[in-house]
Design a protein around this nucleic acid. Structure first.
Length: 807
RNA sequence: GCGGAUGUGGCGAAAUUGGCAGACGCGCAAGAUUCAGGUUCUUGUGGGGGCGACUUCGUGCAGGUUCAAGUCCUGUCAUCCGCACCA
C-alpha cells in the first residue's frame, strides 16, 4: 500500500463527508477531549506536538468507536514574548509572523489525520477572542479580584527595559550582559489567594496524577501557625509568622526582609550605610540565588531593637535576604536553638543561643534541636509539649492583642501585568478625576502600528493615539489608557470554556451550553504546567462560577501528562545540543500513520524516552504485515464452517486482544495495545498456514483487528476496510467487544512448586477450587515422584496459578 | 534542603490483588527463499555450569517480612523532575 497517497485520499473524504463531526444536538454522551493548545513560536510541529496530539487523538477516536460524542477542538495560544523578541530582531511584526506560523501548523495538524473540530478553532491573539479575555478581566475587577500594587520587575538599565526571568542569565541581561536590577512598578494582580483553600481541597476529588496534585498542594503551601506582634523600642510594630510559637522564649533576634516597609524608618544612623549597601546588593540578586541553600546566610543589624512579647526581652532587629517580603509577613523570629538556619546565623553573628525545648525523653542534648519536644526555660509554659505549647503561647498573646492563630499560604497573588506589546491590552482607563476606570467598550484593540523596540516604557505607551484618544467612561474627561498587556496565562486560563461556543459574539460563552459541555473529560498536556497553568485555569473556573457565569467547580475532570521524547542521545532536544529530530522527514517517508504508531509503540506514554530510528522501520514493516494477513483472510482458499482446534486457538487470542486493547486505550497505554495487536497478527499468520480455513471466522477476526487498529492508524485501516469490501466508514464502526465465553478455558496450566521452586506444569480442570486443586495435584504420579516419598508439611494452592508444596 | 518520581537483558519495554521475571518489538545468530541486496518465512537469543533431561544466579545496592517479593517494609546509592532558606 502506498501509505502516503492513501492518507491524502482519506483526509479529503473524511473532510468532505464530515464523518466525525461533533453532534451539538445531543450532548448527553459528550466526551470533551482536550490537548493543551500550542504556542506558534517555531513555524512547524515538533515531535512533542505529535506525541501529544496524535496519541490523544487516538484516544478520542477510540472513544468515538465506543459510542461517545467526542468534541476535540484545537487552537493557538498566540500571544507571547517569543514573537515579540523575534520581531525586535527581525523587524517582522509579531502579528504577521504569528499568523503565518499558525497557517503552517494548521496545515500540518490536518495531516495528522486527527478528528479536530476546526469549526471551534481559537486564536487568542484575535480580537474576537481577546475581547472576552478583557471582559473576564473586567468581571474579576468588579468582583474585587483584580487590583494594583507595587511589585519588582527585572530591569536592565542598559537596554532600558523589563526582562522576563528567562532573559536574565546569571543575574545579567541576555542581550547586553549588563547587571540586572529590581525595579518597583505598579502592576495588576489577580487575587488567586482568595481561593487558596478551595484550590487545595478541590484536588482531592480530581482524577489527576497524584504527583501533579502533590505539586499543586506544595505550591499552595498551606501551613498553620501563629502571627506574633513585636513592638519596636521606638514604638512601631510588625508581625512575624511562625509554626513554632512553642520556641518563642528562645527568640534572640528578629529578621526583616530587606524590602520590608519598616526598614528605612527604624535603621539607626550608625547602621544606615551598611543597611543601604546590603539592600542594594540584594536588589541585584534574583530570588533563586537569594534562596539558595548553598549560599551562606547573610544579614545586617539595623541598630533597632524589638520586644519579645512573651517575656519582654529586648532583641536585635536584623535584615536578611533569606526573608522574603512576599511570604508570610515578611519578617521572621530567630530561634537559634531550634532551627538549623537560625543556629548558623546566630553562630556567625554572635547572637544568643538558649535552649527552650528538650527532647521528650531528655536524651538528646545537642543543638540545634529542631524536632517537637517539651518546653523548658519558658516560665509557666515549661513542661508543655511543643504541640500544646504552640497553642498556649498564641492564646496567651491573643489576650493582650499580640498574637493570633492563622493559616498561611505560600501561594501568591498572580501578577498579570506585562510591559510588552504582543498581548491583550488591559481594559483600564486612568482619569484625572475618577482614577482607574474599566473600559467596557470591548475589545480594546491592540494597534498594529506600534514601535515595539525596547526604550524604557511599555511599547503601547509610545502609541499616542492608543494612549490618548480616549475619554473617561464615567465623566467624559480626557484620560489615558493602561499601556501594559496581560500575561498570556490569562488567555490560556479560559480557552477551554470558549471552544464549545467559540463563535458566540454576544458573550464569552453561553452559560447553559457550557454547563452541559464542561468539565473537560480528558485533558492531555505536559507536566510542566502542573502549578501555573493548571492552577490558574482552576482559579478562573471557580471565580466565574462564583459570579454565576457557570455552574461547575473544576475545569478538568481527568488529566494525563504525556512524557517527553528525547533526542537520540537521550538528552532533551535542543538546537544548542544539535539533537533535534523533526517529524517532517519521517512523516514524508513513511506517512503519518506509521509515525503515530511508532510513537504509540516505542514509548510508555506518560514517560516518553529517546527517539530511535530503528523503531519506526519496524512499525512500517508490521503494518505491511497487517496488510498481508488482512488481505489473506479475504483471499481464495479452501473453506470450512467448523470451529476446530486451530480456530479455537486463534479465537482465544482474538478475544484476549480485544479485551486488552480496549483497556489499554482507555488507560493511554498505547505501547501495550500495539503489542497485543502484534500477538493477534502473529496468531493470524499461524492460522494462515492451515490448509483449510473457516473464512467467515478468519475474516471477522481480520475486521476486528482493523477496527482495533483504526484509532492508531486511521488512514491505513480505512483503506484496508474499503479494500476488503466493507462499507464506509470504519470511523463509524463500534469498537469490537469480546466474548467472555471464548476466554473461558476448560483447562488451565498451573505451576507445581516444591519449596517455592518451580518444578512442573500441569494442565488441570479450570473449575477446580483450592481444595480440589490440591487434591488433584497431590494425586498425580509425577508429583508423587518429585516428592520422593516425603509428606508435604504445608500446601498452598492458588486456583488458576500454582500449587506450592512445602516439605 | 524539601517534595515527587525513576532504576528490570545489548536496546525500547512488559508484568491485576505479592504467584512461572523479561510479554511485544528492535538488534543479533543460524537456516530457507532470492543471481545478489532488500523483503518474506522458520528457529534461537538474561548470565554462569553441564553432552544432557537439568542446575544455579539474576529486576541499582544492603537488609527484612512471606510458602512466595520487580511488586510490601527499613536503610542506602544513582539519575531525573518540581519547589526553592516556607519560618
Amino acid at each position: 500500500m502506498d501509505k502516503i497517497s492513501v492518507e491524502k485520499k482519506w483526509n479529503k473524504r473524511w473532510q468532505d463527508t464530515k464523518v466525525y463531526q461533533f453532534d451539538k444536538s445531543n450532548v448527553d454522551n459528550k466526551h470533551y477531549v482536550l490537548e493543551m493548545f500550542s504556542y506558534p513560536s517555531g513555524s512547524r510541529l515538533h515531535i512533542g506536538h505529535w506525541y501529544n496530539y496524535a496519541l490523544s487523538d487516538s484516544y478520542a477516536r477510540y472513544k468515538v468507536m465506543k459510542g461517545a460524542n467526542v468534541f476535540q477542538p484545537m487552537g493557538f495560544d498566540a500571544f507571547g514574548l517569543p514573537a515579540e523578541n523575534f520581531a525586535i530582531k527581525s523587524g517582522i511584526h509579531p502579528e504577521d509572523s504569528t499568523l503565518k506560523n499558525i497557517a503552517v501548523m494548521e496545515e500540518q495538524l490536518k495531516n495528522i489525520g486527527a478528528i479536530f473540530d476546526w469549526d471551534a478553532e481559537i486564536k487568542t491573539c484575535m480580537p474576537d477572542y481577546y475581547k472576552w479575555t478583557q471582559w473576564i478581566f473586567c468581571q474579576l475587577y468588579k468582583h474585587g479580584l483584580a487590583y494594583r500594587k507595587k511589585a519588582p520587575v527585572n530591569w536592565c538599565e542598559h537596554c532600558n527595559t523589563v526582562l522576563a526571568n528567562e532573559q536574565v542569565v546569571d543575574g545579567r541581561c541576555e542581550r547586553c550582559d549588563n547587571q540586572v536590577v529590581k525595579k518597583d512598578l505598579t502592576q495588576w494582580f489577580f487575587k488567586i489567594t482568595n481561593y487558596a483553600e478551595e484550590l487545595l481541597n478541590g484536588l482531592d476529588d480530581l482524577d489527576w496524577p497524584e504527583k501533579t496534585k502533590a505539586m499543586q498542594r506544595n505550591w499552595i503551601g498551606k501551613s498553620q501557625g501563629g502571627e506574633i506582634e513585636f513592638q519596636l523600642t521606638t514604638g512601631q510594630a510588625f508581625r512575624v509568622f511562625t509554626t513554632r510559637a512553642d520556641t518563642l522564649f528562645g527568640c534572640s533576634y528578629v529578621v526583616l526582609a530587606p524590602e520590608h516597609e519598616l526598614v528605612k524608618q527604624i535603621t539607626t544612623d550608625e547602621c544606615r550605610q551598611a543597611v543601604q549597601d546590603y539592600c542594594d546588593e540584594v536588589a541585584k540578586t534574583n530570588e533563586i540565588e537569594r534562596l539558595s541553600t548553598a549560599k551562606e546566610k547573610t544579614g545586617v543589624f539595623t541598630g533597632a531593637y524589638a520586644i519579645n512579647p512573651i517575656n519582654g526581652r529586648k532583641v536585635q532587629v536584623w535584615i536578611g535576604d533569606y526573608v522574603l517580603a512576599t511570604y508570610g509577613t515578611g519578617a521572621v523570629m530567630g530561634v537559634p536553638s531550634h532551627d538549623a538556619r537560625d543556629f548558623d546565623f546566630a553562630t556567625k553573628y554572635g547572637l544568643a543561643i538558649e535552649r527552650v525545648i528538650k527532647s521528650a525523653d531528655g536524651s538528646d542534648d545537642t543543638l540545634p534541636f529542631c524536632n517537637d519536644g517539651v518546653m523548658v526555660n519558658s516560665d509557666k509554659f515549661s513542661g508543655l509539649t511543643s504541640e500544646e505549647g504552640r497553642l498556649a503561647v498564641i492564646d496567651e498573646l491573643e489576650k493582650v492583642g499580640k498574637g493570633k492563630l492563622t493559616t498561611n499560604y505560600r501561594l501568591r497573588d498572580w501578577l498579570v501585568s506585562r510591559q510588552r506589546y504582543w498581548g491583550a491590552p488591559i481594559p483600564v482607563i486612568y482619569c484625572p478625576h475618577c482614577g482607574e476606570v474599566l473600559d467596557e467598550n470591548l475589545p480594546v484593540k491592540l494597534p498594529y502600528d506600534v514601535d515595539f523596540r525596547p526604550d524604557g516604557t511599555s511599547p503601547l505607551a509610545r502609541h499616542h493615539g492608543f494612549v490618548n484618544d480616549v475619554k473617561c467612561p464615567k465623566c467624559g474627561a480626557d484620560a489615558k489608557r493602561e499601556v501594559d498587556t496581560l500575561d498570556t496565562f490569562v488567555c490560556s486560563s479560559w480557552y477551554y470554556l470558549r471552544y464549545p461556543d467559540s463563535n458566540n459574539e454576544n458573550a464569552p460563552f453561553d452559560t447553559e451550553w457550557i454547563d452541559k459541555m464542561l468539565p473537560v473529560d480528558k485533558y492531555v498536556g505536559g507536566a510542566e504546567h502542573a502549578c501555573m497553568h493548571l492552577l490558574y485555569a482552576r482559579f478562573f473556573t471557580k471565580a466565574l462560577r462564583d459570579m454565576g457565569y457557570l455552574h461547575f467547580d473544576e475545569p478538568f475532570k481527568s488529566l494525563v501528562h504525556q512524557g517527553i521524547i528525547l533526542g537520540p542521545d537521550g538528552n532533551r532536544m535542543s538546537k544548542s545540543r544539535g539533537n533535534v529530530v523533526s517529524p517532517d522527514a519521517y512523516v514524508g517517508e513513511y506517512g503519518s500513520d506509521v509515525f503515530r504508531c511508532y510513537l504509540a509503540f516505542g514509548f510508555k506514554y506518560i514517560e516518553g524516552g529517546p527517539w530511535s530510528e530503528d523503531g519506526i522501520k519496524a512499525i512500517n514493516k508490521w503494518l505491511d504485515r497487517v496488510e498481508r494477513y488482512v488481505l489473506a483472510a479475504f483471499d481464495k482458499y479452501e473453506t470450512t464452517d467448523k470451529m476446530g482446534a486451530d480456530e479455537q486457538q486463534l479465537n482465544v487470542v482474538r478475544h484476549n486482544t480485544i479485551k486488552s486493547v480496549d483497556a489499554d486505550y482507555e488507560a493511554f497505554s498505547f505501547n501495550t495495545a500495539v503489542a497485543r495487536m502484534m500477538e493477534l497478527v502473529n496468531a493470524m499468520s499461524k492460522y494462515d498456514q492451515a490448509p483449510v480455513k473457516n473464512a467467515k471466522f478468519y475474516q471477522d477476526t481480520a475486521l476486528d483487528l482493523l477496527k482495533m487498529l483504526a484509532p492508531l492508524a486511521p488512514h491505513f485501516a480505512e483503506e484496508l476496510w474499503e479494500q476488503v469490501g466493507q462499507d464506509y466508514s470504519i470511523v463509524k464502526q463500534a469498537f469490537p467487544t469480546f466474548d467472555e465465553n471464548a476466554l473461558k478455558l476448560n483447562t488451565v496450566e498451573v505451576l507445581v512448586q516444591i519449596n517455592s521452586k518451580p518444578k512442573l506444569r500441569l494442565n488441570v480442570d479450570s473449575s477446580l477450587d483450592r481444595a480440589g486443586l490440591e487434591q488433584y495435584v497431590l494425586s498425580q504420579s509425577k508429583v508423587v515422584e518429585l516428592l520422593e516419598g516425603k509428606q508435604p508439611k504445608k500446601v498452598i494452592a492458588v486456583p488458576g496459578k500454582l500449587v506450592n508444596l512445602i516439605v
